[in-house]
Amino acid sequence: MVTIRHWAVRHARGLERFYRGFAQLLARLDPLWRRLGYSRLEAPVARVEHAVKGLLFDCRMCGHCVLSDTGMSCPMNCPKQLRNGPCGGVRANGHCEVEPDMKCVWVEAWEGSQRMRHGDRIHAVQLPVDHGQQGSSSWLRVARELSHDADPSPVQR
């Protein structure tokens, strides 16, 4: 799958555009998701999400997707699961300290971010992962959060 992962980083800009449109679409469909019930959708959507993102990005379903902030290179593939940039052990050829045959996930992330319109989002500090969210759908979370952001009435999160 590593080849597809590389492809995703090379096409980070296109994927970024697609993802933004997709997120807005998900958010616009919020009334539908609500009618169907977010909790009922969770399992099937997570399965589809895992299949699609697993293929494209080797997604690990951390439940907090940050791909658009990390040059479309999934940070959970870093053996140290760093969420904020490369460790100090990156090899001179740009490969990983822990897995010498793999290109450092963050070297890829940096290259991907340079191709993106909002690539400077890579400079934002990411919060630690909430391990309780492991396996849950980021798509539904985005739909919920974006639509609530747009909704002026106070909503409990």
Binding site: K80, Q81, L82, R83, N84, V125, Q126, L127, P128, H131
Partner: peptide, 11 residues
């Protein structure tokens, strides 16, 4: 690696 150095700093 529950945290990374960045989130440890923040915490």
């Amino acid at each position: 690696f529950d945290l990374d150095s960045m989130s440890l700093l923040e915490i």
